[in-house]
């Protein structure tokens, strides 16, 4: 009978590692000497994921995500946000399928309840941030990093602030119509978040 340690190294690097989340991959090296000595294989896997990420997301060479983060941080952040998004999608679909969804009494299921709540700026002890691209009519208006929240006040959300900012007619901008207050949404949003570009 084989054990986990008996499996050949190339099976880990070529197959098993490809399915293991970044967080667990990083932890691998702390388990035992065999895995400790395989850290270079873990590193290669992370670099391969980073390359695939850049290609699949079509990040331009000047994209801030390529300069602010290193490859480990990039794949970790992407995975964390991706997991978040998948779970939101799953719960939203579940919510839509709820039998009482369209009744006047309202839906009894509670979507998004299982998401880790903000506490001291972290969710479940982890720092989330989001690489955001605002586009309208296929034109990139703004891109950058948004904090999930400020540590000193958990109820602050840059996205909520964006929608509340009277200088930014974001609905018009998203409809692709001209912004009649004379300010470009790019300038407004960039100004708003210039101090918030996040260092993870």
């Amino acid at each position: 009978m084989l054990t986990l340690l008996d499996l050949p190294d190339d099976l880990f690097s070529e197959s098993i590692f490809t399915y293991v989340p970044v967080t667990d991959l990083g932890r691998f090296g702390t388990v035992c000497r065999k895995f400790h000595n395989m850290r270079h294989l873990v590193d290669e896997e992370l670099k391969a994921r980073d390359t695939a990420l850049i290609v699949s997301q079509q990040y331009p060479a000047e994209s801030p995500i390529l300069s602010i983060l290193d490859y480990r941080e990039r794949v970790l952040s992407f995975e964390r946000c991706s997991t978040f998004a998948w779970e939101m999608t799953r719960q939203a679909i579940e919510h839509e399928a709820c039998p009482s969804h369209e009744e006047e009494t309202g839906c009894q299921c509670n979507p998004l309840e299982s998401f880790p709540k903000l506490q001291d700026g972290l969710r479940g002890g982890k720092n989330y941030f989001f690489f955001v691209q605002f586009t309208a009519m296929n034109k990139l208006l703004w891109e950058g990093f948004l904090r999930d929240a400020r540590t000193e006040s958990d109820d602050y959300s840059p996205l909520i602030s964006l929608f509340r900012n009277e200088n930014v007619d974001i609905y018009q901008a998203f409809d692709g119509e001209e912004i009649n207050n004379g300010r470009s949404i790019f300038a407004s949003v960039d100004e708003m978040f210039s101090s918030d570009k996040l260092v993870p």
Partner: peptide
């Protein structure tokens, strides 16, 4: 997986430091 912890404290610390970001 019935694996014994055979890393030295230095190796443990090194691995944990490398993994701190995750």
């Amino acid at each position: 997986f019935n694996i014994s912890a055979e890393l030295s404290p230095e190796e443990q610390a090194e691995a944990q430091r490398e993994n701190a970001v995750a």
